[in-house]
Write a protein that binds this DNA or RNA. Sequence first.
DNA 1: CATTTATGTCAGTCATGTTGACTTACTTTG
DNA 2: CAAAGTAAGTCAACATGACTGACATAAATG
Lengths: 193, 193
Amino acid sequence: MTDINEQIRRPGADTAPVTGAMDIAARGGPEADPALLNLVELLFFAYRDFTREPDKILEEIGFGRAHHRVLHFVNRHSGLRVADLLDILKITKQSLGRVLKQLVDEGYIMQEAGKTDRRERRLHTTARGRELAGRLARPQLSRIAHALEASGAQSQIFIEKFLGEMISEADRAQVSRLLKTGAGPRGRNGDPA
Amino acid sequence: MTDINEQIRRPGADTAPVTGAMDIAARGGPEADPALLNLVELLFFAYRDFTREPDKILEEIGFGRAHHRVLHFVNRHSGLRVADLLDILKITKQSLGRVLKQLVDEGYIMQEAGKTDRRERRLHTTARGRELAGRLARPQLSRIAHALEASGAQSQIFIEKFLGEMISEADRAQVSRLLKTGAGPRGRNGDPA
DNA sequence: CATTTATGTCAGTCATGTTGACTTACTTTG
DNA sequence: CAAAGTAAGTCAACATGACTGACATAAATG
């Protein structure tokens, strides 16, 4: 194990974990509100497990989480444009381009020229794409359904509100617009921001 | 734009987005409970934004989200072992080893040989590590505090319950044990699973 | 002493993200 | 109509953080 002894057995060295009174305020660590810190960790664990089952399915077919995200949003919001996806996912054109191309090439997503603006590619899932999207969504939906049930019927409204408020203010309106459009083709009308 | 015309303008082709009645049940897409689907998306957006500010800070100092996760858990649960971290993060030894080594080399984390079992490395943050952990935690804590406030005082208990139930059952007990230990050194006593 | 455990490490690979510059197709505007 | 702007796609080059599998070392345990 090479030379770990150089690293350990030095409690009290210059970098030792002495707790100066001074830095307590700056910590945000153990001294911060423990309930909030617990929520930080709960969010991490919840999200970690939320993506586990779909990740496993994706791995089998050679896709990654990025494919899932694209497929999900195109499936749910049929008619989405590439620019919309970029804005939703907050990734670059290249990153999106790579996975989108694969999804198109392998017949999960199809593109259609915009009716009024033919530069646009309106994205839609194919039957094959919907099938995969459903397969990936199912474990996530049942996980959520279970968690909602276990946390009580009244909880849903609080959770929706909480998660909505976790979104950066700059994007909140955009997201709530997106959620409202539900499955319908996202109109090019109304600002697409 | 090369040959996109081969791809588009073929609504009605074999992969066309026709909606067979047959596959509706299997979809999990637009036909699934829209409230649950909204939660899927809310979770995505919330987590996306939850990690944005720390990611920016990390980028400036040449670290990534992996460093944040390690630093956070070591800071909050001082005395954690490498094996515990592997179990919490569900990543491989190599992935962890790389970021942990950097954190140790750059003086954010120190190791201490286990008192009873000297093979163990009990991990602790240094003053420098605590400072960074606090800096990274602050935007996340204030985001959560804001969201809690906006969703009402009663909401907190529901949210904790919900997020807890989102965790895979196999890990739930482990996590709640971890959360309970709060900041204290995680005893090697009691199964470490 | 042999085995198991905790940790670290090597070499190689892959997925997903990044930036910046450029092209093509099309729309809008002066 | 020509110029400017916009939507999308593409190239090259790169960084990070995951992965696998095999192996090394130190210490504990039977």
